[in-house]
Nucleic acid binder design. Structure first.
Lengths: 132, 132, 132, 132
DNA sequence: GTGGTCTAGACCACG
DNA sequence: GTGGTCTAGACCACT
């Protein structure tokens, strides 16, 4: 039940945001399936070397988005509802493949990861604005 | 001399980090050329609706990375040195094109921007680790 | 012997408090009469989808308040004593009618249930303080 | 800038829920107007005798509901947006009047506050279900 | 032993 | 001095 999640402690992005976003992605890509049980707040905190409350906050936040379901005294589970539905596996594979190509190009040109994600974010916003 | 930069005030990412990363990208993509003058700290702060100190801090940080050059009483300029060299224009175009394709796929599959950049980050790290 | 009780699992109010308060009200409004038998701990737990221990705790608490009477090996009954005396039926009807009017007004104005009960609580407290 | 808020520390309802609900009501009833500044997290914590983090959590929760607007380094304000719009003053007055009548009846019949709010909640739910 | 709440106190980002 | 994050640790509600 180890979660494939990595936390950068020095990052400007708060720990809870890093964790939250990564769990969300694991659910969307189908690596975590509806009904599946999540690690306990305590075990995940130990595994990641962060505080229990920080994990609890993330679980609570994701519950409010209907991605997780918390049961007191029982555990935490991936929600069955609509929000937690995964992207189609085929769709996800082509997205991941495209992302890998982008990463290869970026690394080839000597970009850093932050520059690459910043580029994606900037283009995303232009795209959204252009749609208006 | 308006900088094509957008700040999200409510974001978990601190304003200074958003600004710093975006200026860095503008330089790397060649939208800001070596020797070109940057907006004054004050005007950029007003334009973006953020605090003067925040802009000043970013300029200072970028100077330390040799991306900007601060001349007291004159202004701030994009540095001529190595760090501020832009990616080849052709390279950048193919990277941007690839990123656009990725964004289209992601939007088509209903991903949010955070999920997409998270995916890029995750794959980047796997890539780096695989190289070791 | 189904009890007209509803539990909200996700609520900030603990399950035992929700259940306790609702049983108390059923007794006060005369829906449960002195001497009447209560559902078994187990059956009520199943009916409500909550833990047996939680129901048992509520029954124990209500016994301490002399609202219920637990007879080992026999069952649980609404107590005959003073605490469990119901409000006069006519009184209760006018209270319920007034409450319904309040609810209609509240819903008409777009209030949520929590806001309405909060208002009742606030005014209640002001009333009590004013009496002093 | 004292907020007319009361916290019951021993209550089964968590402190953050009590505070959150009361602030929400103050906004809905127009006692707090859009744009108005809220007490600082620290001052409110001191005033209520609770922890700073608890207040901060409430402010954060209410920000997510678009009822408050938090500005780092500046302060907290009632949001201008739609969610924070107050109920019409006349409407609110009739609701409060009706609630007072209900309270008088309830107190006359010897009900406790918890029983009264429980009744309101029960009838509310029946009303909602009946609408379906 | 699970998640939930609360406290106390430190340090950071921002103005 | 403002809000934000994080930690460490206590106690509670529930299974």
């Amino acid at each position: 039940m180890e979660l494939n999640v990595t936390i950068e402690k020095g990052s400007a992005v708060p720990i809870y945001a890093q964790l939250s976003e990564q769990i969300r992605l694991l659910i969307r890509r189908g690596a975590l399936s509806p009904g599946e049980s999540m690690p306990t707040v305590r075990s995940l905190a130990v595994e990641l070397g962060i505080n229990v409350n920080t994990v609890a906050r993330v679980y609570r936040d994701l519950q409010r988005e209907s991605l997780l379901r918390l049961e007191r005294g029982v555990g935490t589970f991936v929600a069955e509802g609509g929000e937690s539905r995964a992207v189609e596996e085929g769709d996800f594979r082509s997205i991941a493949a495209k992302a890998s190509e982008l990463i290869d190009l970026g690394q080839g040109a000597g970009l850093r990861i932050g520059e690459l994600t910043q580029l994606v974010e900037t283009l995303w916003k232009e795209n959204v604005n252009a749609d208006r």
